[in-house]
């Protein structure tokens, strides 16, 4: 009995410890975020830094975004046609593909791919810069690592994400079109005109854009913080990289639910 009690006691204690640790981390993440914003002015005055990072995070993610978007669009076309034709409304396939992509899949899948492709790279890079004293050296040169290293990467992420998401939606629609019209034989005119009639700019396109901006902030911030906070060892950096993917994915899916419920109501 007393053994059970003491086991229970240490269990509670463990949970408490972890909870406190997590809150502590959340606090330092919030502070880190605030510092990044404060130092942003300094680095935005040097657009070259941001452009360079846009190249590394955005442009290098292009291939995976384009290929994934194409396949997602084609699958949407196939699945959508399969269901819609049962109700004799296969012309609505264009609407289905466009709305799924613009509202949900574009921003969400882009963010998930971004976290895997660019987020991990950012975390590993910052973690290694810390482990090899590069951030310390920068500090000793009276250059703030937050202004010079973190803020440009943050803005690069925030800028690239909506662009990548729009691209994802466009390519996806193209993939859906390719399957529905030339291959299955749905009427092309109906495909486009129904899409045009039903997709609303403010309700659908803007909301999707807002989502991808928020995901951009979340993914960039998580990747940067995990890197900056990583223990300066090989093991620490590898754990941090994993955490970036897990936390970014959870954050994206959670935020998506919250934003969708606001946008739909």
């Amino acid at each position: 009995m007393s053994r059970l009690l003491s086991g229970f006691d240490s269990l509670l204690r463990g949970i408490g410890h972890r909870l406190v640790d997590q809150f502590w981390r959340l606090g330092s993440a919030a502070r880190f975020f605030a510092y990044t914003l404060i130092y942003s002015g300094e680095s935005l005055r040097r657009p070259n830094l941001v452009i360079r990072e846009i190249y590394f995070t955005g442009v290098l993610s292009l291939i995976i975004i384009i290929v994934s978007a194409f396949f997602v669009g084609m699958v949407l076309g196939l699945q959508g046609y399969n269901t819609l034709q049962k109700y004799g409304s296969s012309e609505a396939i264009g609407v289905l593909v466009a709305l799924s992509l613009v509202r949900e899949l574009g921003p969400v899948v882009t963010a998930l791919l971004f976290a895997g492709r660019a987020g991990t790279a950012i975390t590993a890079q910052i973690g290694l810069m810390k482990a090899t004293e590069q951030l310390s050296a920068m500090e000793m040169m009276a250059v703030s690592p937050i202004a010079r290293v973190v803020a440009p990467r943050f803005w690069a992420g925030v800028i690239s994400m909506p662009l990548l998401a729009s691209l994802f939606s466009m390519i996806g629609i193209l993939g859906g079109y390719l399957v529905a019209v030339p291959i299955i034989g749905v009427d092309g005119g109906a495909f486009w005109s129904q899409m045009q009639a039903s997709v609303d700019f403010r309700e659908d396109v803007m909301n999707g854009f807002i989502k991808s901006c928020v995901f951009g902030v979340a993914c960039a911030m998580i990747a940067l913080f995990e890197g900056y906070d990583a223990p300066p060892t090989a093991d620490g950096v590898s754990r941090a990289t994993t955490r970036t993917v897990v936390n970014s994915s959870l954050a994206v899916l959670g935020l998506d639910f919250v934003m969708t419920s606001f946008m739909i109501s």
Partner: peptide, 17 residues
């Protein structure tokens, strides 16, 4: 301002990779 008067060579070099 103080650090701009200092230069430091780190043990591992700490070059920007």
């Amino acid at each position: 301002k103080l650090r701009r008067k200092m230069g430091m060579l780190f043990q591992m070099g700490a070059l920007f990779t």
